[in-house]
Every structure is written in C-alpha cells, then in structure tokens.
Amino acid sequence: MTRRSSNGKVFEWNYKDNLDLKTVNKNLMIQINGDRFTDSTTFDSNKCSLVSSLNFKCICGIGSNMHHCEAAQRWTEYAYRHHSRSFDFEKDSEIFNDMLTLAESDSAVQESVQQIKNDICRTVTDEEFFCVGGRGYTTMLEVLTAFALYDKPCGYVQGMNFITASLAYHCNSATAFWLFTSLIEDYELRENYLNGLEGFYERAQSISELAKVEIPEIHAFLVTFEMITLEPVMSLFCNMISLEESKHHLEEFFKRGWKYFNCLFINFLECNSAQIFMCEDQCDILSLFKDYYHCRGGRQSTWSQRIALQNKSTADSYSICDVDWEKLCRKS
C-alpha cells in the first residue's frame, strides 16, 4: 500500500497558489491536506476544476489521490491488510469504466437498473447530493449498475443501496465500487444477499447466540430475532447511521469485520433495553424496531440522536466513535 501513501503529488498541485480563498463561497467545506477549501458552482472553472472534479462530499480530508477521502483511504488499507485486496486506483478506474460501458448494452443489467433507480432516489432523501442529478446519485447508480454486471448471480439487492450511499459520500464511483466489491467478497456480505438468503439466516443465528450470552435477559424477550436483524444486516446498519458517522462506522467494519457489527448490534439492543422491556408482546417489539429503522430523523441525525429520540432515558452521550470497539470485540 506504500504506493499510495507517498502519492501526494496529485494535490500538491498547489491549491494555495491557484485559489484565492477569499473569493470562494462557503457552501461546502472540503478539507484538503489540512487546508480548508470550498466547493461551489460559482467558482472560476479553471481554478476549481480539481475541486469540482471531486465527486464525494465528506469533509474527512482527501486521501492519497482525488478518488476518495482520507477515511476511505484507510478502508482500502484495512481491506489490503486483512484480505489482501489491492487497489490500483488508475487501473481500477479503467476497469470500472469499461464495465459501465459494457453494462449499457447488457439487457439483464438494464433490467436491474430500473430497480436500482427506483431505490436510489428513496435512499437518502434529505440530502440534495443524493437526489436525481446529484453527484451522489450518479455515484450510487454507477456503482450498483457496475456491480449488477460484475456479479450477475448475486446482482443488486435492496439494502446494498444504503451501503453504497455511505461509500458514495466518501469516494468517487471507482473507489466506491471496489470498496463495495471488497465488502461483498472479502467481508462476506455476498452470502447474505444470495437467493434464499441462507447467509443471512446463519448470520442472524450467530448474532442471536452472542446475544444469548451477552445480554440474556434482552435476548429472552426477542423471540423474532431474525426479523429484527434483517434490516441492519442487509444494510450493514447504513440505513440508520448518519453519513458523517459512516466514516467511523465503516472504518470499524473494515478494521474488524462482522465482530464489530455484532458488538454494535448488541450495544444497540442494550441501549434500548428499557424500551424493549416495556413491550407487551412480539408485535410491540417489531413495531419498536420498525420505528428505529424507519425513524424519520433522516440521515443527518446521529446514531445517538436517533437512539435518544426513541429512548430518552439512555444514550445521552453515545456515539459510535466513543465506544472502545477493540475492547468489546475482544471480549466477545
């Protein structure tokens, strides 16, 4: 991975010399190599060609090249470290673009594209970035279309749209695609989505067993465990975690894989134990979780806000980046 860490040249291109910061609109802050710049359509097009070529929106700071942010850079490194997934960004972009071209003339893929479009516009509805015509929308469409071609037996399955949105917030299409592919192939998401959802059932079973040991009292309450785990597993919790927090969330997942996910799930249940214990029956429990998963706080609200919204007595200061996942994962 060293080839990337030393590759600062692309941006040393001197933003400082070329951009007059005072003329810049402060619409969207992008942190580049520690300096703050803004991205706006009112920029002088020559000066800001590089900024506007950024297709992601986060403020994590840019990675070793213009394809993704610093956080996504680390995700690629974890994927490499734990699963020997190597990234060659220039070459990967080429392959990705070739796939997009191929997808255009593939009738089976084009069928999925309808479904994909149908879902993208209802994935993150409170962010212009993800609305039709927005850059996030385009990234999601490209990533999922290419994936439908890349892995035809699996194809596009609902839930993937949420994961892709989180990636698209931090990367351009090509990096987002290869990171997504890494999640699917290296981090064993693929089995969850395959016909029959057998992988999901196994995963739900293992989370249930862990819960039985870690939080036996809550576990005893949750008879329909599979139903509660379905949505978080299929979307990797990306349907609930704000785009900003997805930085930490995906980082932990790329670092620790499903161990982290399981701990997060247990933690989520623990945070909501008071609410769960108040339920009279399984229907109440299912309604409670449905409210969590479909909480209308939008993707802007943080994990702790969403939990606090439902459950005022707990989770006052609970945020994903405050938890010692290392310790928790070791314990379980």
Binding site: R122, T123, T125, Q158, M227, L230, N239, L286, S287, K290
Partner: peptide, 12 residues
Amino acid sequence: DFKPTIGAEFSN
C-alpha cells in the same frame, strides 16, 4: 420518502 421495505413489516 419511504425507504425500500426490506423483508416485511406490519401496522395495526
């Protein structure tokens, strides 16, 4: 802004 329904859910 309904999200896609994953699996099934119910209301009374």
